[in-house]
């Protein structure tokens, strides 16, 4: 926009940088490059939001977290389909039946699938990659797994079907969180 006073009704034209679409293109859109923002070619407005939450654990996950604090993995069993579910729930999503049957499953299992992450949650490159896996836990129904990290193993040595075991934080360090298990390591 031009500087200075503009008379009422005066055509002030199109501001610097706001150009019509490229000639010959019927598709609208004006691309902004990082350098355009750096150079001040276009204006932008910065804002940061800060929200704070306190999440309730719910009934089933609450029991799961209590179990983790005690160094054990809690599942629940549906009395209709007989599946042992991990993570546990108070309902079966397939039978839509109520569940109140709690069981311990083992802290050992099998790698269902894995990946190797070179970026963090904000897509920033990490100095060393983390290995992520879905681990099917022994004692749960076939195919029941949880997502967690793998440790004490090189990425190239991981394979689907690898036997693994949870590495727990010490009793004093455990606080009832998924991170009470530091990672799973090869068995």
């Amino acid at each position: 926009m031009k500087e200075g006073v503009v008379k009422k009704g005066q055509d002030i034209g199109v501001g610097r940088g706001i150009e019509p679409n490229p000639v010959g293109s019927k598709y609208a859109g004006i691309e902004v490059k990082e350098s355009d923002l750096r150079d001040g070619r276009y204006m932008s407005i910065r804002y940061s939001a800060m929200f704070r939450y306190r999440w309730d654990t719910g009934i089933a996950v609450g029991r799961f977290l209590e179990g983790l604090r005690d160094g054990r993995i809690v599942g629940s069993r549906c009395n209709v389909c007989k599946r042992i579910l991990v993570p546990p729930r108070v309902f079966c999503e397939l039978d839509f039946a109520q569940i109140d049957d709690w069981v311990y499953v083992y802290d050992t299992g099998r790698v269902n699938t894995y990946s190797i992450s070179y970026i963090d949650k904000q897509a920033r490159r990490m100095s060393s990659p983390v290995i992520v896996a879905v681990v099917e836990l022994d004692g749960a129904s076939q195919g029941m797994g949880i997502m967690h990290l793998l440790g004490e193993v090189r990425p190239e040595d991981v394979y689907v079907g690898m036997r693994v075991k949870a590495v727990w934080r010490s009793r004093e360090e455990r606080k009832g969180a998924i991170t009470d298990i530091v990672y799973f390591k090869p068995l």
């Binding site: 999440w55 654990t57 996950v61 799961f64 977290l65 993570p87 990946s115 992450s117 970026i119 963090d120 949650k121 904000q122 897509a123 983390v130 992520v132 949880i146 997502m147 967690h148 990290l149 969180a177 998924i178 991170t179």
Partner: peptide
Amino acid sequence: TLERPLGVNLLW
């Protein structure tokens, strides 16, 4: 409760 504390991103 169960996934975010692991540092998850969508590509995982």
